[in-house]
Design a protein around this nucleic acid. Structure first.
Lengths: 163, 163
DNA sequence: CCTAAACAATTGACTTCATCAACTATTGAG
DNA sequence: CTCAATAGTTGATGAAGTCAATTGTTTAGG
């Protein structure tokens, strides 16, 4: 029971008087404060993402791919861009997922160089089960009062909309 | 410029009438709505964490370890628990970081089985540079009005405090 | 005390993820 | 037609992950 260190203390030290080069009012840098806490929450929650994927016999990256593949066919190169990784990496990744019957490669008709990835029926079904688990909110969120949840939702909509 | 797919549409479909087994009021499940948006924002931002770590010649996991190691010495097994991975994995991880002079192993005096990890001076300096980058808030956050940032900070404090 | 279970770290075999360099096939521009 | 650019694959290599087995070191029971 020694988990949950009080790392907030460590972070607040960045706002010590006279430290910041520019902004930093009397109580420090507000965007950074909010972001740091947000990061803390997400980081804690993401620690068990590999275990969550493993429950469905997926590696973390395969789970990530399955999630991205919901909007419809996707070129391998586009997937590589989404994953911010090399195209050659995607080849092996898709090899394994295709061998398990989750996706298929379909040659594009407009451009015979590109291969489009399509979810199989099994892949789509597994994706639904995955999303169900991914978007299950953690206790820290469920425990918030309704007004906080509404405010949070609205703030996030503004943040995502205005970028 | 085809990034930022409108995957919100996909997610909202989960609240279609008659689907949920339990809660789901007229406008759906509020915690899930808030969480889904939060997840979207964080996920988008986290995509370039590997690149951020690479700027400091760190792998993503090494960056993660460096971040965890700020509170003081840590047993290898404790680190394995933090990382949610096997202890044997930590051996190689620490081998590489020790070879680069970021950490050292110190045998514990109370229990000669355990080895404590301690940041070197170089390791601590690199950690500061890393944290500076990690906690730099993204544009989506910086663009929010001050009242939203205050509300967000306070909500996150409640969420993290009450778990 | 002495033996046996439990634990911390390591090693070795193996898989997946990731990069880079080289290659093939295809497209598109001049 | 030729040449540069692009999409995907292959091969070599290394990091990160798992599991099974091993070595020291505590700790608990008889």
């Amino acid at each position: 029971m020694r988990g949950m260190n009080g790392s907030g203390e460590q972070l607040e030290r960045k706002t010590k008087p006279g430290s910041g080069p520019g902004q930093a009012g009397p109580e420090g840098d507000l965007p950074r404060q909010a972001w740091t806490l947000l990061f803390e929450l997400m980081h804690t929650h993401m620690r068990n993402f590999p275990a969550l994927a493993a429950e469905l016999d997926l590696s973390p990256v395969q789970a990530h791919v399955l999630r991205q593949l919901g909007e419809g066919p996707l070129a391998m190169s586009t997937l590589a861009a989404y994953l911010s990784c090399d195209a050659s990496n995607v080849t092996g990744l898709v090899d394994r997922m295709e061998a398990r019957g989750l996706v298929v490669r379909r040659s594009s008709e407009q451009d015979r160089r590109v291969k489009m990835l399509v979810l199989t029926e099994d892949g789509a079904a597994l994706r639904e089960r995955l999303l169900e688990r991914i978007f299950e909110p953690p206790d820290a969120i469920c425990g918030l009062p309704e007004e906080d949840l509404c405010a949070l939702r609205d703030i996030m909509r503004r943040a995502l909309g205005a970028q």
